[in-house]
Design a binder for these strands. Structure first.
Lengths: 231, 231
DNA sequence: TATTTTATCGAACACAATGTTCCATAACGA
DNA sequence: TCGTTATGGAACATTGTGTTCGATAAAATA
């Protein structure tokens, strides 16, 4: 399972090209960038670029996957420390907002208005696969669901992404915690509406009274989701 | 205010180019189309194309705006007949799904790829401006709102668009009426959650009991929205 | 109908960007 | 040190874009 040592030149070239791409996206937007721009900025030869990536898109995708790996490793570490120590429960959505906030310059370049739809679609698939399983498990405790599970999941992911892009495009006027709360407020009652009520009745407090009760109950389903179960 | 008579040749050329673009989008997708393709299909000269449109995008946008005009005229007619006659209330969301369903071939081609991104952004702005006013009016009857109005509107529009693209991408497995209902089920409780409760209490039935009661009450705010108030 | 106006055609053109090929060279790992 | 290989750089074919211009055909107008 050990990674082979990579030739210094390869990692150096890749790093230079990634850095060049990110800087250029911030400067002039992804669409306006030409391969030549990247070559000039990174100071690498034309043939070298095509030896590594088929085109501009593949370079961007590769940059993004690096971020994803970073996030997954962080989450794995947190989950690990939760199992052994006494760390608090992991809130995947909050961690996502935090992660994006930490790398907001890159994400703004990657997922904001300036970049293509490509990455957002990638993220959509990623989050969809992340949520479809726990959500499917969730409906098993429900009496009835009026909206098909695929639509609800698609809907939830789109909602999350729309909040994320809004957050980035508007220069993050709220904290990650606040955005997490907003997401919770906006989506939790939808899950309730889409999936029906719980089979086991826990009392009236989850159906009426302060909304916090039911909100928390529903939101707890987003807690401790393993973001990379295949590892 | 009368429109000047347009040279027959102009309208003919434009019509040919629009038809060619639409046919080509259905065939091979917008991204893959070159200006030359359009010229060949429409059988017009290269210089003629650039005499009318700056580029491919402008032609697509012009085509799309034709669809929008069609929709708005339909809606105006319906609203008119509602004022004079005894037509039922107008449901904007439902009408939107119907309109898209009617032109699903075009919308599906348009909403899938990167070109779709341009149109989807256009649609987003359009719907945002359509909804921001009635939603702002709505919160005036509310005691408190925990989520800023801009976020909620952005969220709602994204939700609607995500349902629309899902519908198209999955070959419209449900009727427009069903999609309208799904949208209602998914979003109505969110508005409630985001905007807080009504100032005037209408009784307990809006807070507990069958969800249909409050859902209907909230959803009624989407009824009879004039989609083109500037006319 | 005769005249004027103008939209179109078609070819040629400059230009920008892509992606490939080849080979000498420099940097790398062992 | 030595074999390996990533890189540099230039040349090249290719594709698509957007412009120009004069001849022509088709429209509007008188």
């Amino acid at each position: 399972m050990k990674e082979k040592k990579e030739d210094r030149r390869i990692s150096r070239t890749r790093r230079l090209m990634h850095e060049a791409l990110m800087a250029l996206i911030v400067e002039k937007g992804y669409e306006a960038i030409t391969v030549q721009d990247i070559l000039d900025r990174a100071d690498v030869g034309r043939s070298t670029f095509y030896a590594h990536y088929r085109d501009k898109d593949e370079l961007l995708l590769s940059s993004f996957e690096h971020l994803r790996t970073l996030f997954e490793e962080q989450q794995q570490a947190i989950l690990e420390s939760r199992r052994t120590g006494k760390a608090p429960a992991v809130n995947l959505i909050l961690e996502l907002f935090r992660h994006i906030g930490e790398h907001h310059k890159l994400y703004k370049a990657i997922a904001g208005k300036q970049s293509g739809e490509m990455i957002v679609k990638y993220l959509h698939r990623y989050l969809y696969n992340l949520l479809i399983e726990p959500l499917t498990a969730l409906i098993k405790n429900r009496k009835s669901f009026s909206v098909p599970i695929e639509i609800t999941t698609h809907y939830l992911v789109s909602s999350l992404l729309s909040l994320m892009t809004w957050w980035l495009d508007n220069n993050m006027p709220y904290s990650a915690e606040k955005m997490d709360e907003i997401f919770r407020v906006l989506t939790t009652p939808c899950i309730e509406a889409a999936f029906g009520r719980k089979v086991e009745k826990k009392g009236a407090e989850s159906l009426s009274g302060e909304p916090d009760g039911s909100v928390k109950a529903f939101y707890s389903h987003f807690i401790d989701i393993d973001c990379c179960p295949d590892k």
